[in-house]
Design a protein around this nucleic acid. Structure first.
Lengths: 198, 198, 198, 198
DNA sequence: AATGAATGAGCCTTCATTCAT
DNA sequence: TATGAATGAAGGCTCATTCAT
């Protein structure tokens, strides 16, 4: 693909991202994207032939952005920080993710995940979830090694925690959760493996 | 409303339920429902003027069905059973809920919840979640009283567990979870407050 | 037709009249009439099979009501009154007709007249117009006989005046005319044949 | 608007005009216009989103056509003609207007005027009426100046005449008037201010 | 006679998609 | 490449009309 085409795609994706953040996945039409990107109908079809195709690229770009401040990289690079510190950073990130609603793709991502199940397409959701479990697991292992955390089975605990976090995310989207409630829930989560000491 | 009309509505709801289970909430059209119910376009409009109105009734009927084997009723009625037994029953129910996917409305319910957030409609999701938190809390309190469970703050724990369960539900819908994984996760959850004794 | 059926028709016509006064002729549906009359859909069809059929009866009833304070009757009965007085009464009636807009069938009548032209049906409008021309002509003749009015051709003058009045009616419906303007126009009309003497 | 779009609109308006002339205003559907213009349903919506919008443009085009043989322009340009001549021309135009029925928009215009009253939209009817009153008034003033006509209040007389003409128009649409009757009525009208001399 | 549920035709409107320029 | 006019399928909704009860 030429560089020119690539930059055009970037432009489209950027515009489409806003639309998906606003309307979720299912309600977005090619017309919406065309209008937000201020390009012609035919022009969009030169690059994408469905909203789904656009959304896949939106997600891919989103992934790249995240990779820049990559979890795993961070974890290893600042390995001199205590596991507790790193965990707190991880949870703060998750909290941000739970809270952000507008300008976030989260609803679109859920809708897209449902859509993928229907179509038997392998969605990106799973990959992400597993990456986060892995990152968390590493943090836990290091913490156990340091004697900061008490935990028999870090992998199982990581999964357990990520389910809880996923639960908060979806509850935040569907029924709303106050920041305060998130904080106290996160504290409870910590007590699962950190000696009570706050 | 006449009995006749009521039975007609039942017929529509039954048909619509299948459609919603298959297609979720957003993709369902009045035409879909009309075709599944084998009635005329105008006929449907006699009873409902939008897919949303139909879905609300589908959910209401779903609720009635559940009330028949009501959580709360059960909990109080067999108060001679140990809290542990009741909890196991509660978790078995949740596991069923997590696993069922086809013939289940769960995806439609999520999509509807997103839809409600957009429209600022108060959704049924929150009510349900809170009811389940309450039921679980009661079980925990009884268990603590009996000396079966160890737990300082039963309400917070109930919320914590329900978030985890919600997380499993959504993950089940979006990426799939094997029954085995659910079992081990539930075991982990139990260890949060039951002395290790498996 | 049984007396019972007749009274049912009366009920329908009365209700329909309100609907036609509100919505004109073309926009009225069988449903509108059914709802205003609070009868069943099928019930209406026992008596009328179209809005047009209903409207014809509405007009007929309207005609009967007017016959009770019949122009012609009045003119002959109070033949001892001066022609000028009778004319003033006639014009006052016309003025009322020009002004009344809501609760009047006038727009419906116009729409119906257009409809009849399309369908080559002979409308009631012509009959009425001619009746009024005739009444006016009689008044004029009497006035000439009395020496009150000056006029060579009373018939032509009556037609002339009725056109002018029709013009005011339609202008009132389509663009609105103030009462004051009607008054001054009527004065002008009078000057066509009455010596200036006001 | 591009020239292309403009010519497409012209095409639509031309087709729509025929439909409105045939069916009046209220009965015309987007489908009617689409079929007459031989374009697609969606194609029409590119240019107009309601029959009313189309009709407004039909009227506008009609106005432009008339402007080409503009009343006012004519009156001033051939100021060397006698007022009587100009008046005769004016009345001949009015007579044409009264008589033309098929291929004329008059019924549609009336229906549209009723529609506008309902919707509180300011209709074009009033503007036209007032323009014609003004034109007529100028003719009368000139005639009085020339000593051709006798008339104290040209404005009032112009209004008076236009009401009469409006009456003939509407009667022509609703009950039909022969050309002969129009001629004799116009003669009567003339006698209102021209010395008897026929 | 009377009811009102049910039907289906018909219009409205929006969009994905195509195609001539 | 890029445009945007044009198409037509699809779904929404309303109403005249019928018919079993």
């Amino acid at each position: 693909m030429s560089e020119r085409a690539d930059s055009k795609k970037q432009h489209i994706i950027k515009a489409a991202r806003e639309v998906f953040a606003l309307k979720g996945f299912k309600d977005v039409t090619m017309k919406d994207i065309v209008e937000k990107a201020q390009i012609s109908r035919g022009g969009l079809y030169l690059y994408y032939d469905s909203t789904e195709a656009v959304f896949r690229d939106v997600l891919a770009m989103e992934g790249e952005l995240e990779d820049e401040n990559d979890n795993d990289g961070l974890v290893t690079s600042i390995s001199d920080a205590s596991a507790g510190d790193i965990l707190m950073w991880f949870l703060r990130e998750q909290k941000k993710e739970i809270l952000k609603s507008r300008k976030s793709l989260s609803v679109a991502v859920y809708e897209y995940a449902f859509y993928c199940r229907d179509k038997k397409i392998n969605s990106i959701t799973k990959t992400r979830f597993e990456a986060e479990v892995l990152a968390l697991e590493k943090i836990l292992i290091q913490g156990v090694r340091n004697g900061e955390f008490i935990c028999d089975d870090p992998k199982a605990l990581a999964i357990d925690m990520m389910y809880t976090i996923e639960g908060m995310k979806i509850c935040s989207r569907t029924m709303g959760i106050s920041e305060k409630k998130i904080d106290s829930e996160l504290k409870i989560m910590l007590s699962r493996f950190v000696g009570v000491e706050e």
